[in-house]
């Protein structure tokens, strides 16, 4: 049978032996190609329930697959990361297709939270939060590993939980030291620091500010985090 939609065949589903002989006939290479079946054999309802239970994940079931989010997405359209398709991630979450989501484990976390999708969604899906929650559930289930994105979230949370006020300088230094992103050279960092201090985008200096009464409030925040399943930031 001729294959009509070759673009749908994924590399890992293509089974092919370089050398093969059957009944004395040489069937090496393309002659012995098999393609694994791409069958959807079940739905898994618990996945979407878990996404829904997280804060910000409630709107995951609002999605009707129009594609407004994806077509305006910074990553998908402007940056050209075509695999990043929030519409598709949401559908996979809705029907609980974890196997397919797993393939995008290294893509989903790359959302830069520009929130254009949230602005434009006609059904009021909080796309950015929902996609982050899908990523979170995948990690909680051990389907995907920690990513630079999730480590950033963790560093961010720890930072803000310390005093109740975000310390941008400490946050950046800690993250950059741990992750060592290639682009963040010393010169780049220094130039950036001058720029953002000058234009007022950074408000913290060497002295850390504190939220008044933070000790009491921290307890409340920790309780909420624990309730929502995030390991408390103690």
């Amino acid at each position: 049978m001729p294959i009509h939609e070759k673009n749908l065949i994924e590399k890992e589903d293509l089974l092919e032996k370089e050398k093969a002989v059957v009944d004395g006939v040489d069937v090496s290479g393309r002659w012995n190609t098999f393609i694994r079946e791409r069958l959807l054999s079940d739905y898994h309802e618990d996945f979407v329930e878990e996404v829904k239970s997280l804060p910000g994940g409630r709107t995951v079931t609002n999605c009707w697959q129009c594609g407004t989010c994806t077509s305006g997405c910074c990553l998908h359209t402007d940056y050209g990361l075509r695999e990043f398709n929030p519409r598709y991630f949401i559908y996979l979450a809705q029907i609980g297709n974890v196997d397919e989501l797993k393939k995008y484990g290294d893509v989903i976390w790359r959302c830069i939270s520009c929130n254009k999708c949230v602005e434009r969604c006609p059904k009021g899906v909080k796309v950015e939060e929902v996609v982050h929650n899908i990523d979170e559930v995948l990690r909680r289930r051990g389907v995907t590993e920690d990513t630079p994105g999730s480590r950033w979230d963790r560093t961010y949370l720890d930072n803000i939980m310390a005093t109740g006020v975000l310390d941008e300088l400490g946050l950046t230094l800690k993250y950059v030291r741990a992750e060592k992103p290639e682009d963040f050279t010393r010169g780049f960092m220094a130039r950036m620091a001058v720029k953002i201090i000058r234009n007022g985008n950074i408000r913290t200096g060497p002295i850390r500010r504190r939220t008044r009464g933070w000790k009491k409030m921290k307890k409340v925040a920790e309780d909420i985090l624990e309730r929502d399943g995030y390991a408390s930031a103690k």
Binding site: L39, L40, Q65
Partner: peptide
Amino acid sequence: EDTILQRPSEVP
């Protein structure tokens, strides 16, 4: 056929 997934679907 799940036309969003673009694959055959045989769900119980």
